[in-house]
Design a protein around this nucleic acid. Sequence first.
DNA 1: GTCTATACTTCGATAGAC
DNA 2: GTCTATCGAAGTATAGAC
Lengths: 217, 217
Amino acid sequence: MKNKKIKASNSQNEAKKTTKEKIFDASVDLFSKKGFSDVSVREIAKEAGIREGSIYNHYKNKEAILDAIINYFKSEFNKSSLPEEEGANLMDQGPEVFFVGGAKMFMDRINIPQMEKIWRLVCIETYRNEKIREFFNKEILEEPIAGLENIFKIMIEKKMIKPVDPRTLAYEYWSFAIFLFFEYFILKYHEDFDSYMNQGLEKMIEHTRFMLDAVKI
Amino acid sequence: MKNKKIKASNSQNEAKKTTKEKIFDASVDLFSKKGFSDVSVREIAKEAGIREGSIYNHYKNKEAILDAIINYFKSEFNKSSLPEEEGANLMDQGPEVFFVGGAKMFMDRINIPQMEKIWRLVCIETYRNEKIREFFNKEILEEPIAGLENIFKIMIEKKMIKPVDPRTLAYEYWSFAIFLFFEYFILKYHEDFDSYMNQGLEKMIEHTRFMLDAVKI
DNA sequence: GTCTATACTTCGATAGAC
DNA sequence: GTCTATCGAAGTATAGAC
């Protein structure tokens, strides 16, 4: 579970990259730093080490590069979503193990270098890009909350926690995670990356403790 | 306390506006919709009903307009911060009255038409603009949390709530408010404004109830 | 202080030689 | 598929008449 992070610096070696990959990676880098609108095709070409015109042999236009990044993000995001049975197993070990374990797994997903940049990109472009916004609302806001609501419902049925409204609990739990996204990727993005990511996990665990304390039987 | 909102549609009547105000208001409008980088000086001039060149008689450049908006926002934000004694009075009526009353007052501050647009602008430009980011971190994140920490400390001393770590409580309470900012101004901004603002207040009140339930004696 | 006109720059995208 | 060269559009900003 730990060596998932190594995998030869995320994708291919720098040397083996195709031109299309170079354009893709350069765009991820620049878009995540400055935002889509403040990056020019010239910059992307320079960063990728090719001429401007060559970009259009691989992508129809600038927008198409962003689309490709979004699609990559979506597929990676869905690829690594928590399998149903694994969750059920964790839950039997008690609520704390379930949530702390879940938070760690989730952080591991974000912590892949290339994906971390795209997470930042997603956060800063959500206001402007409708595709990203729809994805965010559906897959990062509504679906997790619906899933959590279900989990809390089960926990209540199993008398693992107090019978508080499961929807409220889900919202209380997950809104904190969204807050951490924005705190990390927007408010604190430039302040020493590594330590901040670890702080995020600790904060999420502390939040989990507070919530479970509030509803424990 | 309620008629603060009327005040002749926020600022001057449309007819009486100076050119500088027209430029300012047009910029607020456009920046809050599309973001600073995606708005041109030409657009601002058109929206303000003047010629492009005339803008430079009032502002040094495009960036200076944004600076003026930020400064206006800061001064309005500080102008309306909660007076110390009023808070103490509210607190004596119990935690629920204090927080529900506080949430309402806070929402009233945002709900002024011109300020609502600037709040949106602040939320979407935070990642890009260092002045906004510093302001957000200091005045919307750290200071409120420090203030809340103090309030929870007093409540614990007065034995109004359980002796949970006040810093944790402050973070638990305020992170939800920040989440609501982002949910409202980024994720749901175009989905029927008025009802969403009201929902926000209800959500904040529900959150307050959950938290107070968790720490009540 | 506003207008017309325009300078100057940068941008996204394309054409055509290799 | 990459390069050179360049186009047309759009951007910021300035000059000068009124």
